[in-house]
Write a protein that binds this DNA or RNA. Structure first.
Lengths: 350, 350
DNA sequence: TGCCAATTCCAAAGCGCTTTGGATAAATTT
DNA sequence: AAATTTATCCAAAGCGCTTTGGAATTGGCA
């Protein structure tokens, strides 16, 4: 049985109708210079009229370009499809749509990931990929470089930082600022509720935290540091636990607004008023579901350093598309700074 | 310039190497019966050895199947890429991956949506689509039926319910249960913090709410009902506002855990203890970032009716794949029930 | 008017796969 | 042993597009 084509009209038919060759029609539509404006206009009109659309698989086969960007996301225990991811996607997909690209997601276990990249590239299913959540020990970057699949990293790995494109938040200085601020308020026992420190961003955040403490002559207390998937219950449980220590911390730094919300809940549970009896501060990705759309926006209720992960997604998408268009350009690296925003959840130790 | 193929080996080369025709090799790999087991095994080995992978665009062109499922998501003011969506995707992409399908997302304004479906189908970029967030006045279903693109609706539209496949939660009875429970606790002034009622699910939830009230001889008070995008600040602001009414509600029903969290924050702000001074209950999609992974899971702190949106995504994905494999089968419709779980956030009016 | 270059167009050859319609060799039956 | 199946395999024709390498037409200039 021949393939069933659902489309109304293909290039051949359109060309036939116009009394032109397929070549000319194709060139007219793709903006090549060797076709006169008059015929180009005619072709455009006919294409419009017959609702002609080129077949992606056919043009992909002919050009070797898929006009698709791939995202491979782990489906392991440490799920990556979470609110951070969806906000990132919202930004990225917007950039893709503007450039005429589609976004493709494939779920995979970490072991499958290498295989998938090979699969992507060997038959050009996608023109490029976004590397999410780089680890401290990261192997994907080398792999992608060696197989020649364009990519942009959201975050950074260690090592050769200028051999590939990435966009990262200055995690270290962000958390350092937050910690310094708490120290300035008189706090000495400050807990860090961090993300998984096998991840590069969390590792850097810890360095920032420790650096602030050490600068002020405070010894980091391992009992006050935890490292896990960033979700609400983690923030709740950890905060509850730490508050029951013999010498409980007087301030908490959270690596994510999600766990910070859990921390809030724990503080309420203990009858502690944030900003008075206890101080809570967090890194904030400006997740959209927490953003007020009304103009009469309430003041930020939590002290934070923030950076829009949605904007990051958009920019990463743009960078990747530029790179695909211009493969020989030098890598682009962007390090985004954050600002400290003082809210109502922190106060002087007293 | 001819297309640059990055793959190591194509079908022709593989066949040449094996001393077989492309036909035989293709059939061997695709499990056709007219090839002997011995040669099939040989072909498999060689394919493995040379790391052969069929080109998706080529096979898509030849078969008319893309092995891709499309999701078109609005990028309007009322963004659809939110935590609910990402959890749904997590489930769906898992189902797709298991069946060898990829997931494609295209961001679009509502006006573009029709155009995109036509685009999808006319050149089979995708084999089917998931319809998200059906409205009360829904036009996509008829469109998709008329152009013959397989689809499954997450939710339902009104009208002909058995002419297409869908999976929905019994929104009406869910909210009815919740409201009834609050009434049984003695509450009479119960606020509904609903989603956008132009959406079908929110419309149904409102019906459930009103039905419970009316059954108990309570007149729904329009002042106690709001309808907006479900996010945290909405829950906060609405709850704050309602609490300042002359006759404030004694209980709140939220359409989403996100706004319920905002409600919690507002209650705390007012110094009201949930479960004592005020009752809060919510519909809960079991968003993964709120789920505790530890076994020592705390009791649910909010009274709720719940249904896993991730499971829904998985099931919708499965249904769609089945439908694509078997286009002439009857539509599949699933209505998922919810259970009332009593938590600590509700109490007898006292 | 004749010649050369620029303009405008086209036929045909892929891209890598699937599938049709046989052909050939092996096994079975008469 | 000849005739008929049956099991294997193959050449070639698409799928719908892009792109190469010319060919035909037009315009400018001497």
């Amino acid at each position: 049985m021949p393939a069933v084509t659902k489309n109304i009209v293909n290039l051949k038919q359109l060309a036939q109708h116009l009394g032109l060759s397929q070549t000319t029609v194709s060139r007219a539509l793709n903006g090549f210079p060797e076709v006169s404006e008059r015929t180009r206009e005619k072709v455009r009109e006919a294409a419009e009229k017959f609702n002609y659309r080129p077949s992606p698989s056919a043009s992909s086969l002919a050009t070797g370009k898929a006009r698709i960007i791939g995202h491979v996301v782990p489906v392991s225990e440490h799920r990556m499809i979470n609110p951070h991811f969806s906000d990132f996607l919202a930004g990225a997909s917007d950039a893709y749509a503007k450039a005429g690209y589609d976004l493709l997601i494939r779920a995979a276990t970490p072991e499958q990931e290498v295989e998938i990249y090979r699969d992507f590239v060997s038959r050009n299913r996608v023109d490029g990929v976004v590397v999410h959540a780089p680890m401290v020990e990261e192997s994907r970057i080398e792999l992608l470089q060696s197989i020649g699949l364009p990519f942009v990293v959201h975050g950074r790995a260690g090592g050769e930082e200028h051999s590939y494109s990435w966009l990262d938040v200055d995690n270290r200085s962000a958390i350092e600022k937050l910690t310094n601020y708490l120290i300035d308020l008189g706090h000495r026992r400050i807990a860090l509720v961090n993300g998984l420190e096998s991840m590069n961003f969390a590792h850097r955040r810890r360095l920032g935290y420790e650096s602030a403490l050490i600068q002020h002559g405070i010894d980091p207390d391992p009992d006050l540091i935890t490292s896990q998937d960033m979700n609400e219950p983690y923030g709740y449980e950890t905060t509850m636990e730490k508050l029951e220590l013999e010498q409980p911390p007087t301030a908490f730094v959270y690596s994510s607004i999600l766990s910070a919300m859990g921390g809030m809940r724990a503080a309420n549970m203990h009858g502690l008023r944030p900003g008075k009896d206890i101080s809570l501060a967090t890194f904030d990705d400006q997740l959209s579901f927490l953003q007020s759309k009304s103009s009469s926006r309430p003041p930020p209720y939590m002290t934070n350093v923030s950076s829009s992960i949605q904007d990051a997604g958009r920019r990463v998408g743009e960078m990747l598309i530029e790179q695909i268009a211009n493969p020989d350009a030098a890598p682009v690296c962007e390090l985004w700074k954050t600002n400290l925003v003082v809210g109502e959840s922190t106060g002087r130790l007293g």
